[in-house]
Design a protein around this nucleic acid. Structure first.
Length: 321
DNA sequence: ATGGTTTTTACTGCGTC
DNA sequence: GACGCGGTAAAAACCAT
């Protein structure tokens, strides 16, 4: 086995230049002689007449030459390739936990203490960037869902604030980023008076309904957030506009809700159902033709619920009018 | 886990277009 | 006959305890 190690024979042999013979005619246009690439001068010239057909090529190879593998290692000034898979493209340092130097020798007391300090900071930077990545992904998710639900910017802001707090309070371990992000958005939507039902939220989230509800409760409790039950009235504009109903319907519906609230008949009932029933009742009162099914569809509430609620609403609201 | 409440599902009869 | 509406019973979902 005396075969020469070809990969270290000369520096020029390591060029990654594409094979020129494939790209260009290898024949000189003048004398039909062979065209040869001269790496020394960065030129492609005719062997016979010397015509230079291409010059100033960039030499991408190393400027040094190595004659054995050891020399190659010593002269090379580049490290591992970078990768997009890692958030820092693999460029950050990592400090080993062992108190040994590169040769495996134990460290002196002084150096060991120094390494401990460095390790602390290394860990701090690393976990900080881990949170950054986490946040980035969560905010992207919040944005996506908010768009799908037609929620305005302020609501998204609120959602991201809630998420940030959850992250700071270390609420994430044990739950999915998406779950918490969804819960944050749900809470934000309600706080900003642009509530979306759990059904609507879960329709655009990758997390299932029950999980969202659970995480939502958890986040609320841990953050000490006070979110009042959604006001049925805040659903009215959306429903009436989805059904292309005149503004008078919305007004009547709101009056009915107010009256019912004053009587206390609304407590314990689902806000969505109340809103849907109010819209239906309101439409009835202003002679708009609207079926229970239509309202039920846009509100995702059963017709039965609408029937029950709207009768109560009329009972509470009609005598007062 | 349990019990009470609300909502949903499914089925029914009635009246109208 | 299809459709909208009203009612009921049983099942499911939800909530506080």
């Amino acid at each position: 086995m005396t075969e020469a190690p070809t990969h270290v024979r000369t520096a020029t042999s390591e060029r990654t230049e594409p094979d020129r013979s494939l790209e260009e005619p290898t024949r000189c246009p003048e004398c039909d002689g062979r065209l040869v690439y001269d790496p020394e001068h960065g030129e492609t010239a005719c062997e016979q007449c010397g015509l230079v057909s291409q010059e100033d090529a960039i030499d991408r190879g190393p400027e040094w030459r190595a004659f054995d593998p050891g020399e190659k290692d010593r002269k090379s000034r580049v490290g591992a390739p970078t990768t997009r898979m890692l958030h820092d493209e693999g460029l950050s340092t990592t400090i080993d936990w062992k108190n040994k130097d590169a040769y495996g020798r134990s460290l002196s007391d002084r150096k060991r203490r120094k390494m401990e300090r460095l390790r602390t900071w290394d860990e701090r930077f690393r976990s900080k960037s881990a949170k950054d990545r986490n946040l980035k992904q969560a905010l992207g998710e919040i944005d996506r869902m908010a768009s799908a639900l037609g929620l305005p910017d302020p609501t998204r802001e609120t959602a991201s604030v809630i998420y940030r707090r959850a992250l700071e309070e270390d609420l994430l371990p044990g739950r999915s980023i998406e779950g918490v992000a969804t819960a944050a958005l749900y809470a934000a939507a309600r706080q900003a008076d642009t509530p979306r039902s759990l059904d609507e939220i879960s329709a655009v989230s990758r997390v299932e309904r029950a999980e969202i509800a659970r995480t939502y409760r958890y986040v609320l409790r841990e953050l000490g957030l006070e979110v009042a039950p959604a006001d049925p009235g805040s659903y009215l504009p959306r429903f009436t506009s989805d059904l292309e109903l005149p503004e008078t319907v919305e007004r009547r519906a709101r009056e009915l809700l107010e009256a019912a609230k004053a009587e206390g008949t609304t407590s314990g009932k689902s806000p969505v159902g109340l809103a849907a029933a109010a819209v239906y009742a309101g439409a009835l009162l202003v002679d708009e033709q609207l079926t229970q099914k239509e309202v039920g569809d846009v509100a995702n509430v059963s017709e039965v619920t609408i029937r029950k609620r709207y009768k109560e609403l009329l009972e509470a609201g009609e005598p007062a009018l």
